[in-house]
C-alpha cells in the first residue's frame, strides 16, 4: 500500500496509471450504476413497511457511504501532503473535495425526499441526516479555504490542515449528534441500511455502491489530471516571467 502510494506520488507514473485505469473505472461505473438503478427501481421488491419509497435507499445509502469515504480519503491524502510533502497527494485531495461535496448533496437531497413520506416533512433533525449536513459544511469549509489565497500552495496547505482537524472532529461530531438526538427523542427513525436487510435488497445496494465507488475513482482521476495541468501551467508561467526579468 505505502510503496504503491509512494510510486503514484510521481506525476509521470500517475499519468500512466490514470490513462490505463480510466476506461475501466468508467466502464464499471456506468455498468454498476446502470444495472444497480434498474435493479433498484424495477426488479427489487418493495418494502413491506415503507413500500416503494425504500427504492430511494439504493441511491441515498451508497451516496452517503461515498461522501464519508471521500472525506476519509481526502484527510489521508492531506496528511501525506503535509507529512511527506507529496504535492500530488495534496492536489488529489483538492480534486476530491468537490466530488465529496456532490455525494453529500445527493445524500442530503435524497434523504430529504425520502423523509417527506416517512416523516411527513422534508427535513427532520435525524441523527444521520444531521451528521451528513455537518459533513457537507466541512467540505464547504475546505473548498472555501483552499480557494481563499492568492498563493495556491498556501491555500492547499491550510486546507489540508483543516481536513485533518475535520477528520479528528468527525467521530466526536457523530457521537455528539447521536447523543443530542436521543436526548430529543425523534418521532421516528429512518431505517436505512439496518442489519436486518433482506438479500433481495442487499444485492442491488451492493451493485450501486460498486458503481458509485468506480464513479468516484474515475471522476477523481479526471479531476486530478485537470488540477495537475493547471499547476503545471502556472509553474511554466512563473518560469517564463522569471526568464523575462
Amino acid at each position: 500500500m505505502t510503496t504503491s502510494f509512494h510510486r503514484l506520488a510521481n506525476p509521470a507514473r500517475f499519468q500512466k496509471f490514470a490513462r490505463r485505469a480510466l476506461p475501466w473505472s468508467w466502464a464499471v461505473a456506468v455498468l454498476g450504476l446502470g444495472s444497480g438503478f434498474v435493479w433498484g427501481l424495477a426488479l427489487s421488491p418493495a418494502d413491506y413497511q415503507q413500500g416503494d419509497t425504500v427504492r430511494v435507499m439504493y441511491v441515498h445509502v451508497p451516496a452517503a457511504w461515498m461522501a464519508m469515504a471521500c472525506y476519509a480519503l481526502m484527510a489521508l491524502l492531506s496528511a501525506s501532503f503535509l507529512v511527506w510533502k507529496h504535492q500530488l497527494a495534496g492536489i488529489a485531495a483538492l480534486a476530491a473535495a468537490p466530488v465529496g461535496a456532490c455525494f453529500t448533496a445527493i445524500a442530503l437531497i435524497t434523504g430529504s425526499l425520502w423523509g417527506k413520506p416517512t416523516w411527513g416533512t422534508w427535513w427532520v433533525w435525524d441523527a444521520r441526516l444531521t451528521s451528513v449536513l455537518v459533513l457537507f459544511f466541512l467540505y464547504l469549509g475546505y473548498m472555501a479555504l483552499a480557494g481563499a489565497f492568492d498563493d495556491r500552495l498556501r491555500g492547499l496547505r491550510a486546507a489540508s490542515l483543516l481536513a485533518l482537524v475535520g477528520i479528528i472532529n468527525l467521530p466526536i461530531i457523530k457521537f455528539s449528534v447521536d447523543w443530542w438526538n436521543t436526548l430529543h427523542q425523534p418521532a421516528s427513525i429512518l431505517r436505512a441500511g439496518g442489519p436486518s436487510i433482506h438479500a433481495s435488497m442487499l444485492w442491488p445496494l451492493a451493485i450501486t455502491a460498486l458503481g458509485f465507488a468506480a464513479f468516484l475513482v474515475a471522476i477523481l482521476l479526471v479531476r486530478i489530471r485537470s488540477e495537475l495541468a493547471l499547476w503545471r501551467t502556472e509553474a511554466l508561467m512563473r518560469r517564463q516571467t522569471r526568464g523575462m526579468t
Binding site: D52, V56, V59, A63, C102, I109, P117
Partner: peptide, 18 residues
C-alpha cells in the same frame, strides 16, 4: 406504489448531479 413523487426525483437528482 403512489410514491412516484419521492422515488423518481431522488433518482433524477442523483443522475443530474453526477
Amino acid at each position: 406504489g403512489g410514491y412516484a413523487a419521492t422515488v423518481w426525483p431522488a433518482y433524477g437528482v442523483t443522475i443530474a448531479i453526477l
